[in-house]
Write a protein that binds this DNA or RNA. Structure first.
Lengths: 161, 161
DNA sequence: CACTATTCCTAGTGGGTAAGTAGAGAATAG
DNA sequence: CTATTCTCTACTTACCCACTAGGAATAGTG
């Protein structure tokens, strides 16, 4: 249940592009500007943006006045889509999709737990767009979750060893 | 968002022990029996069970009539606890807890997304016990999630390349 | 047409870690 | 005292994440 550096960087880069998009949707932003502003290693960022371009979320232009920009409105790009592009499926068990794992005996229904995790993640991440994050205003699934009194507090007790 | 082999094996081993516990709570189960029945590499399983013992979920005994058993009722052991022991925090961003990450500029509220993921996972996984999985009967958060019509179906479209 | 600035592509590298193995040592029962 | 089983330490193997290097392609500028 780790968010990788790739996804973290990718999200931040896309948010940077989204902000620029809202000001001027045709504006091209240089990789170097994203890299410096968000403290992301330049060449790694390039690789990430290229992946996002292949997936159709970003448009790029080379040359002296080149740069990157979003291909569509920030409202129409969800966190779930970006994670899937950069990291693959939202939930997987030993590399397999939850619906493909099969257990014997007492573990038979364990599959339901993994499927449930996937649905839970979908519900949250498919409902949040880049525009939502920029505005800091979230809709139903996520907004309710953040009201949990201990949302921003770690569970105690397992710093063992 | 990967469930590791360690967690997968650990869950299945615990379910096997849970089933035996319901029949006779004092019964010791041999590692070899778990390994064969659930197709888990023996020595790897031993390491996992030792970790679970250190965390207090399992009791073991050596010798000719030795083996492993649960330390308490399967109803009182949640999936969340086991994942935390075997894999660490339910959600982390580049190795950090969600409440500790800090972003600048347009990414400022990205933290809320990661925090939301954690709450979502907690809601599901803290509410499911080994006994629930054995019975195949789940309570509120998970039971509702599994009713989603596409719960057992993958999202299409990102087998790219 | 140079010249410069930028992205694009291929190909790495280093380090960490997950997954699994080996074997001797220690406890327990009969 | 022997057979069985868990315990512990160490090791291996392989993969993959995070990141890097260098040049090729592209586009504007004088």
């Amino acid at each position: 249940m780790q968010v990788s550096a790739k996804v973290d960087y990718g999200m931040r880069a896309m948010l940077f592009l989204a902000e620029s998009y809202l000001a001027d949707s045709a504006q091209l932003v240089k990789g170097d500007a994203i890299s410096k502003s968000q403290a992301i290693p330049v060449k790694f960022l390039e690789a990430i943006l290229t992946e996002l371009r292949h997936a159709g979320f970003v448009i790029s232009q080379r040359g002296a006045v080149g740069g990157y920009r979003l291909s569509r409105n920030p409202e129409q790009i969800s966190v779930a889509e970006l994670i899937r592009v950069l990291d693959g499926p939202l939930a997987a068990v030993r590399g397999q999709r939850p619906e493909n794992v099969h257990y014997e005996g007492p573990a038979e229904r364990l599959q339901d737990v993994w499927v449930g995790i996937r649905v839970a993640l979908r519900n949250v991440l498919e409902g949040v767009s880049l525009a939502d994050i920029l505005a800091g205003k979230f809709a139903e699934p996520l907004s309710e979750l953040l009201k949990a009194p201990d949302a921003y507090i770690s569970r105690p007790g397992y710093e063992s060893n």
